[in-house]
Design a protein around this nucleic acid. Sequence first.
RNA 1: UGGCCCGUAGCUCAGUGGGAGAGCACUACCUUGACACGGUAGGGGUCCGCGGUUCAAUCCCGCGCGGGCCAACCA
Length: 932
Amino acid sequence: MSLEKSYEPKGFEQKRYEFWIKNGCFESSDNPVPGQKSYSIVIPPPNVTGVLHMGHAVMLTLEDILIRWRRMHGDNTLWLPGTDHAGIATQTQVEKQIAKEGKGPTGKPLTRHDLGREKFLERTWKWKEDHHGGITGQMKRLGCALDWPRERFTLDDGLSKAVREVFVKLYDEGLIYRGDRIINWCVRSQSALSDLEVIPTERKGNLWHLRYAIVNNRGEAVIDPATGKPTMLVIATTRPETLLGDTAVAVHPEDDRYKHIHGQFAILPLVGRKLPVITDEYVDREFGTGALKVTPAHDFNDYDLGQKHKLETLSVMGLDGKITASGGIYAGLKFTEAREKIVADLDAAGLLAKVEPHSHKVGLSERYGEVVEPVISKQWFVKIAPLAKPAIDAVRSGQIEFAPKNWEKTYFEWMENIRDWCISRQLWWGHQIPAWYCDDCGETTVAREDVKACSKCKSLSVKRDEDVLDTWFSSALWPFSTLGWPDKTKALETFYPTAVLETGFDIIFFWVARMIMMGIHFVGDVPFKKVYMHPMVRDEKGEKMSKSKGNVIDPLVLIEEHGADPLRFTLASMSGQGRDIKLSVDRVEGYRAFANKLWNATKFLHLQLEKSDEIPNSGPLAEPVEGAEAWLKKNFKTLAPANRWILSRLQSTIQTVEKGFANWEINDSTNAIYEFAWLEFCDWSIEFAKLPFRRGGKEREESLITLHYVLESTFKLVHPIMPFVSEELWDSLPWKKPANTPVRARDGKPPVATLSFQAFPVTDPAFRDEAAELEMGRLKAVIEAIRNFRGENNLSPKKDFVLHVATKDAGAKAFFAAYANDIIQLARVTKIEANTVGNSVSKFEAMIPLANPAAELRISLDGLVDVEEERKRVRKEIEKTKVDLAHVEGKLSKESFVAKAPKELIDKTRAEAEAFKTKLAGFEVALKKLGV
RNA sequence: UGGCCCGUAGCUCAGUGGGAGAGCACUACCUUGACACGGUAGGGGUCCGCGGUUCAAUCCCGCGCGGGCCAACCA
């Protein structure tokens, strides 16, 4: 099989993916073979109508790496795909669409109410069907090894059944209740929101200081001892309109300014209502005037205060965004209008002490960015504390581990201060709450099956609750609902608990914590054993990507331009960072070059394997009958050092890559592969092999077998990260085996040639060779010293020169005898001639002293380079060596170092000092040779 | 206010209790039979500051400074 000139991902990515799907490469089994471990990950389901963004790309890449890696290790691997119905987001999109289509009966744009619930849901389902292929298709383009036949959707029948089961059970256990509570109300969407869906945002506003007259229980003014006049309590507020709902004022019990008003009453400005003065340590004496107006119906903290002090709760702000009838003369005004009017009226009445600018946090709807009002409303809640406790314990006891570990702290902090979860939403797109209210007796019936009659009075006049559940309610069940729960399925038995939950830290509370609670409560076991948090992707400046800023880097564009693999490699290599990834396109281009490098190395190997022209004994080479690996192992001792060296380096690489995958340090894996493949294999191994390739015969065969084996191993190592290009190149190799994971062989499926079914490399001590690594290190240093001479003198590679070598001992002599040809080849030397120590080869010469191998290298400068240039080079070397020597000698001259440092370190340092001295002396001689 | 993360070459980032690294960018030379998405050589850093522990600190500890995130009861 011949390869294209260079890496062009468009030519093969789609084809490869189709091949994997056709052959069921990503499918898992409910019946693993005996002894086979199962490994499962459920995908964090993206919004079904969404478009793939960078956050998805990170998540999908990292999960795919784990899945492919475990599959190559022989596990029964399930990566379960699916999508989320995303209540508000999807409903809003459809509403926007129908609004464009026409006008309703009142002449306003068409709303969902004009269509009616049934019609609207039909439209939304169609919308879902139309868009579903978008996001799933994009996952496929990224190369995700998802088990597609098991794909689920949070509103499908099975999941709906699970949702219903959970709701009914929690209701029966008293953990779901309906009640009037303060909640976040979004006027725009006419729905309740959970705390998490409200984003506190800094807004500029004012602090209005209002005057409340203080009276006793008989209505007489209370005299302020400080002034001798009737007390006017000044209270600062950012929301004057809420005063209509005030039912108390509060001061700190220890605040001396206000001790005389304890137990008295305040007259509510404009309204005239008598409010009790309460004391509570919650009040901050430092803020404003140290006095607080309490509006239990429209502020979360005031609500708590109200509960504690048994205050009346008076709703004055309606769900329609207008002041309610309780607001007296202000009834019917919008909140903003009411504020203006009330402030004006207060001012007119002389009750406005002062106004000062003040910025404070206002809750905005996550979805619409509009102000969210705390109001009292009848909603459904999950009583969360009893569920949270075991979920906290599971993490504390280590049953679930977070990585990075510090996220556990965040988790605990939230879980220990958790509020009840408001789960009802006034939407249509979602799981409708399975509660029916009886018109006759008022009973609430909650049931698994749809209800026709009241469970208490049997009346047929029952109405179903119109609301749906928070989207996250169904997401919380995802790890087990997708596996068939509440039925006791084989899938559940095989794959629950899942191995890993991998996601962004921004949904720890929305999703991760809730899955843990629900999993433990309903399945009796944690839903996953590990939680891996990946960083957020930001732009080059570190800013959050957003459409409005126009700084979005579209992963699909990057895939289109550079291929899925370079993008994946980039994201994986940046995954080790703390919380943020600043993505730069440069990096993607760099890894595209890496893919191209692999491509060309493979092309070179093909060329060599097939070569049959002028060189003797160099026809197409077949794989050794026992296989390359066995052959190499058998002949390892007699292989050329360069071959033993790269095999040994491969072992270290395997070890690092494996450790990185296992310990959630995937960037270590990517770096190890990159450095091995490029800096060791391509830069040195291939270059060393060119000589034997040119000569033909046994040497050529040995190097070919080594290179083939190492390259194939590299493809296996990189496959989880870059599945497409690794498979394309691997498949082109002549000696590949269809399948070699033991599990696949027993699985009854026909073996197809794919890396998915290849065993992931495992380190083999038989291929470790420290002596070869040491020897090659020396050889590389010799070659680099000569290259440095050439480079520093700007010597064109075309300029030839002879290298004169004077060896100082038998070892050095043997060394140069063995590697003369390699040095000639790689350092671009015409030839090597033997010389004796100290023997000049011309009037001006470059002399390169070597410590190990002990030798002097000489190059005549006649007609080659400017002598002054070479002097500069040598002086530079001398300076460098002097700094090095001073450093180690400084250490050795300290008594405390010699007394306390480990012996090996001292020995090593002494040896280094000797080597630097030798080198320095050598270069000083060299400088003299240059006439200095 | 509390918690967390980050501060290393011009840029994006690795890294280690014992002489500072990569990629990109930059300079010079090179179309050498895999690769110009390439090769070779090179320049460039008080590893944020100040203390402490240690024979030895960029790394560990403390205190600052700067940037970011999260949770929040300052109306």
